[in-house]
Computed example of a mutant assay.
Amino acid sequence: MSALGELRSLKGSTAPRQKKQNRAAFLFLTPWFLGLAIVTVGPMIASLVLAFTKYNLLSPPRFTGLANIEKMLGDERLHTSLGVTFQYVFVSVPLQLALALLLAVVLDRGLRGLAFYRSAFYLPSLLGASVAIAMLWRQIFGVDGLVNIVLGWFGIEGQGWISSPDTALGTLILLNVWTFGSPMVIFLAGLRQIPAMYYEAASVDGANRRQQFWRITLPMLTPIIFFNLVLQIIHAFQSFTQAFIVSGGTGGPVDSTLFATLYLYQKGFTNLEMGYASAMAWLLLLIIAAFTAINFWASKYWVFYDDQD
């Protein structure tokens, strides 16, 4: 038999086996596809349709065209909520990533009990978005809370940090910064992947630790920084529980903690304006998508990959 005939015979014998493996793969993936269609894609399509309707959950949706979009343009509370959300994202995310990177660099120097510290620092990321921690935060920054008690030891008169419009958002920013554990662990993993020979060569050339950080560590970590930046921006835009619990669901005082997600909740589940809430949800999705696209576009100017020429 010629070589060409043997090749055809081999292909013919492997084709049924490949089809059988493909069927098995699709069979095991069926629950995931069903979940994607029922839990994600289906509700998204329904939400997009409802964004062009007036719907109060009690009567059938009524198509209103672009009325919800026109309403958003003149909704002052929506504009306020977006401003609060932008301030929260632009302040808390850089501070959170800076703290995470700082602690990752410290832990990477081979501290004794590294596993314990890594777990302890990661714990806030698991609990930070919970109702219990938000309630605890409300107590800590209350008039009789722990912060004012500590300030009293130094003769400083405290205040109601949660009840003041000047400081209420700051407490939520501090809470988000406190949940630095997840990006810290990712930074720590990235630091372990930087070849030691770079630092050895820099030491031979007389570079100190600070110079090594700025010239080696930071450039080599830019892909990890980019990954954490995109992830944490998306997460910050979606924040809801902290503002809801701390403000009692009102977004106060004086709408200083009125996140876009909280205002969306108020419109949808308090005022039963589900069509308008759906339009707001798609606006928030477009904002997140725009910031993600900007980050990917800008990454080519500052993100360094080791395999680049």
Rank of each mutant, 00 (worst) to 15 (best):
A3V: 12
E6M: 11
S9I: 04
S9P: 04
L10N: 06
Q18P: 11
R23F: 14
A25W: 10
A25T: 05
F26T: 08
L27I: 07
T30N: 10
T30V: 14
T30C: 12
W32D: 12
L34S: 14
G35T: 08
I38G: 04
G42I: 01
P43F: 01
A46D: 13
L48E: 02
L48D: 01
L48K: 02
F52C: 05
T53E: 06
T53Y: 08
N56L: 08
L57V: 14
S59L: 11
R62D: 12
R62L: 10
F63T: 02
T64H: 07
L66E: 08
L66Y: 10
K71T: 12
M72A: 14
D75Y: 05
D75G: 03
R77C: 06
L78S: 01
H79V: 13
T80M: 11
T80G: 11
T80H: 12
V84C: 09
Q87L: 15
Q87D: 09
Q87A: 13
V91L: 01
P94R: 00
L95Q: 08
L95K: 08
Q96I: 09
V106Q: 12
V106E: 09
R109V: 08
G113L: 01
G113A: 01
L114H: 05
A115E: 08
A115K: 15
S119V: 04
S125E: 06
L126H: 02
L127E: 04
G128C: 05
S130Y: 00
A134N: 02
R138S: 08
I140W: 03
I140S: 01
G142P: 08
V143K: 12
D144T: 11
D144E: 11
D144Y: 14
G145L: 00
L146Y: 03
L146I: 07
N148G: 05
N148W: 03
L151A: 04
G152I: 06
G152K: 02
G155V: 03
I156Q: 05
G158Y: 06
G160V: 09
W161C: 04
I162H: 07
S163C: 02
S164D: 12
S164Q: 15
P165M: 04
D166T: 09
D166Q: 11
A168I: 00
L169Q: 02
G170N: 03
L172C: 00
L172I: 03
A189L: 00
A189Q: 00
A189G: 02
Y198C: 10
D205E: 15
A207W: 09
R210L: 15
Q211P: 10
Q211N: 09
F213A: 12
W214S: 10
T217L: 03
P219M: 04
I225E: 09
F227R: 06
V230K: 04
Q232L: 13
H235P: 07
S239C: 13
T241R: 06
Q242Y: 08
V246T: 11
G248E: 11
T250L: 12
G251H: 13
V254N: 15
D255C: 07
A260Y: 12
T261W: 15
T261Q: 15
L262Q: 13
Y263S: 13
L264G: 09
G268E: 05
N271Y: 12
G275F: 06
A279N: 05
M280Y: 05
L283R: 04
L284S: 03
I288F: 07
N295Y: 13
N295H: 10
F296W: 10
F296S: 05
K300H: 07
V303I: 00
D306H: 04
D309F: 14
D309K: 15
